[in-house]
Design a protein around this nucleic acid. Sequence first.
RNA 1: CGGGACGUGGCGCAGUCUGGUAGCGCACUCGGCUGGGGGCCGAGUGGUCGGAGGUUCAAAUCCUCUCGUCCCGACCA
Length: 570
Amino acid sequence: MRASRLLLPTLRDDPADAVAASHRLLVRAGYVRQVGSGLWSFMPLGFRSLQRVIGVIREEMDAIGCQELLMPVLLPEDLLRKTGRNTIPELFKLQDRKGSELVLAMTHEETIALHAAGEIRSYRDLPQTWYQFQTKERDEPRPQGGLLRTREFIMKDAYSLDRDQAGLQVSYDAQAGAYRRIFERVGLHVYEVDSDVGMMGGSEAMEYMAPSPAGEDRIALAADGSYAANVELAVSRASQPDFGPSAPISELETPGITTIEQLAEYVGRDPRLTMKSVIVVPEDERGGVVLALVRGDHRVHDLKLTRAIGAPFRPATPEEIRATFGAEPGSIGAVGVREGALRDVIVDPVLATGGYLSGANRTGWHLHNVEHGRDFSGRLVDIRHVEEGELSVETGSPLRIEPAIEVGNIFQLGTRYSDAMGATYLDEDGTEKSIWMGSYGIGPARTVAAIAEQSHDDHGLIWPPAVAPFDVWITPIGEAALAFADGLDRELSSAGLVVVVDDRELSPGVRFKDADLIGVPLRVTIGKRLASDGVITIKRRGVEGEADVAVEDAASAVLRSYGDAAAASA
RNA sequence: CGGGACGUGGCGCAGUCUGGUAGCGCACUCGGCUGGGGGCCGAGUGGUCGGAGGUUCAAAUCCUCUCGUCCCGACCA
């Protein structure tokens, strides 16, 4: 095709409001344009790449026997009332002209369960996996990073229906296999990590995390590859300080000391021998005050604590702390709290052994040698933020923490949704049983953005061939070159490549810059040397050097080079 | 929701403090030259300065309100 007929709205300057590399480059190269906060159009260039990613996903879903369908974005609110998910704050709500309450789908578990309830009768109908590419709407508190976090996006969502847990495990494993092939084929580096099941519920879940500095999530990875988990649930072996022999509690005056750092310095002890008291107020009907304890050098992970409490929370105010503990913030501890004053005490398991320096609940005083079980009690629940350099629980391999973009996830949902929707089947033994469900998502647009994050340089995007909008970009310089370029285009196109002949009346430099910015895998230059030496030049994007090839051999040389590029990205 | 920044031709910006003719670069149009890394010369098109109200002889500029966008945090199925 001719570039002069294409919409190629490349920009010379970076957009002023773009921070993430993918955001900056996808806008600059003309792939996407913003319509509103978290709302984006895929321009023709971007749509090509998006469709290629979708094509790969579709092939891999079909290959494991999934069936494609399409469900509506607009849903009756009643459908979500059955699972209680109609109260999620991110849900867009609206009314029709009759005043009926509708919502915009964030995901389709309820709808699938509705259809399973309607259509699945017998164990003979199972297993099934249904999937779609459909728009999802989420009223995000803060859209961000261009395509990385949007309010409207297309999601590939698949849902498996099985007789039992064992069947679900098989469907789940099949999806995991397909996901690995999908991300490999599109040239995206991902880690498969253990993940929080979140409000989805269910028993087991994994996320597919593309490492990138622009990522909003953090993943913990063992150096030996034996462990990978979202820090939301990652565990590790904490370093062990030398506790010395167990000793009775003793009081210590600590005037004006309110932080762990001050305390450790004042007493001249390892901060690992101190205990940190975090006081929070759950934001549910029950209210009350919760005391969470971690070692002095550790941090509480908010989501872990939220799970431990069973409700979101906020930090307690100084007034609430004084009223509950009878002391100023900074001198708070677990020992000697008034009976019934606390809703819950949550103790990080690291504190289960050893004696620690802790607040005395008496302003300006601390206690030595406080031991869990002897001096105070509390539920042992992991609430600690895993830190870089700590050791993997299983193999002792050191952990590093990397930012990453969540591009996909797989969940074992169990029977939560089928129970709510009455999705049952009649089993072989004549009894009615709940269908076991799994759900499996991939964000194709976020995948495109993640690839852009991982694969670019100062000149622009560098697409893996599988997702590039075009395979070959031909830059003819001069009239004779254009005729030759059109011929080469015909030959390569019939071989299955998508070819652009840049016939625009622009200087060669500008056209080279555009091809690089757009990130086309192969660039062919046809210039003076066509006539003088009978050669054209092939350049691979992102690879040093270029090759001159004889005109007679042009098409086969380009095809060979494309094959090399495709092989290199796999 | 808390904090911060920014809205001026399509894009990137200056002008705002100190009120007085809307300006620069790129892009775009026409003509010419050029042709292997954002090339050159000449002539042009295009903006109610986010919106509303106010102060003033006079507002992009000062005041009030409002809308929008981005960033940090909170949140995130």
